[in-house]
Design a protein around this nucleic acid. Structure first.
Lengths: 225, 225
DNA sequence: GCTCTTGTTGTACGAACGTTCAACAAGCAT
DNA sequence: ATGCTTGTTGAACGTTCGTACAACAAGAGC
């Protein structure tokens, strides 16, 4: 308590006040704001996506959002791209990579890996779900978000269909890969939704099992190999 | 243009002004407000759920909502009960009725009817979907809505599980009915969601087919009988 | 130490928000 | 006609919203 703080010593010696704020590179500050905005979204839903709350969460003043983003709506699009777009695109890229190096990854292993990534703790988390949920409600209303969403889902659906088709061809099965991919995505989103609204109904393990069951009903076993 | 309107004739004769508003029974007015609020929700999402817009949509003055409901939040709960709770409970009641009169409805027919009701145009409609979507985002945040939602989904899941179990028992199949019911509901909600965010991805017919496929993979054929 | 650039602050503003309530009038009872 | 009940109105309030912008200061360059 009586011990001199480093700041105090500094102030005594140089008679300098502690800086009231620190300057950051534009992209660093943008990331900070996006992260703070994401945190607001995951806690209070779209109703908490406000200039005041986001700036308070980020520990900056009210004027900064409009300095780094064209508007609050622009920040929302960035949040979408940063938290959802990025992670899904990550899954797509990894799937493409696995499919490219055909030697190490037989089709069923690649498909199984893609399925599992949907239920990995880093994606299938409660905070991620609340972000999805909040954004879904906005996508239906916001044209810019809707465009971004369609592009993303089309890409993911296509990649998933490719992986499914690869397994089906290898096993000589007749499968409507794009319909199955669409249904699988619907099931995953639905399970996320159920979990988000009532976590006692489903566990990540049960959700993963349900996902595999849907695919295996059409392309045969994927897990035990 | 120069033709006398009925109102004008009336006014001339009796020197009476047209009534500025009409009085309604409390429950009638409440229904009007709930319907107007629902319309706002289905068009503009939760962001359009405001006193001003709802009253304008209903054609009444700003003060009326707080006269008939404890608050705007209370109105939201009523919207939930009126548009979702009611329709799902309707499905549950019909399913119970079918299961009661065992003579006319063999288990597989009862289950098929329950499945089909999920994709009937009166439920699987674009405006209904936007209402669901808006409310989902609120359920995750609003304690009162969350409680109502859990009660409703528990009831629906239980009824669906009963219908599934009845078919499984009849056919001597070993099925985890409650898990299958949960997965089915997740699939349906997911398909609704996909359709809502991008209507070109799925049709109601394809959605219904996907629902049947999931169940038939475990309990056997349901449609061709 | 000094200047300059520019990231940051914080106030100001109008609009929209939910809520309250005194005044009003529609329509039934008399 | 007249009075009474009460559903309805609309202004007013304080708050919060998104945005704009002049003033400020942190930190690099010299």
């Amino acid at each position: 308590m009586t011990q001199a703080q480093p700041e105090d010593a500094k102030r005594k010696r140089g008679a300098k006040k502690a800086p009231r704020f620190s300057r950051e590179q534009a992209d660093v500050r943008r990331s900070m704001l996006i992260e703070a905005a994401t945190r607001c979204l995951s806690v209070g839903g779209i109703g908490a996506f406000t200039i005041d709350r986001i700036c308070k969460e980020a520990g900056v003043s009210r004027g900064l959002i409009n300095h780094h983003f064209e508007s609050l709506d622009g920040l929302l699009v960035e949040v979408y791209k940063s938290s959802l777009y990025a992670s899904v695109n990550n899954q797509i890229d990894e799937a493409k990579r696995r499919r490219a190096e055909a030697s190490g990854w037989p089709p069923e292993a690649a498909l199984a890996a893609l399925v599992r990534s949907n239920f990995a703790p880093e994606y299938f988390s409660r905070e991620n779900l609340l972000i999805w949920l909040s954004l879904w409600g906005e996508i239906a209303v916001n044209a810019r978000l809707k465009a971004a969403h369609r592009e993303l889902y089309d890409a993911y659906r296509a990649e998933l269909a490719e992986d499914i088709a690869a397994v089906a061809v290898e096993r000589g099965r007749q499968v409507d890969a794009s319909a199955l991919a669409r249904n699988f995505i619907a099931l995953v989103d639905g399970l996320w939704l159920e979990w988000c609204l009532d976590e006692s109904v489903v566990t990540p393990q049960a959700a993963e099992a349900a996902g595999f069951e849907m695919l295996e009903a059409q392309v045969g076993p994927l897990r035990d190999s």
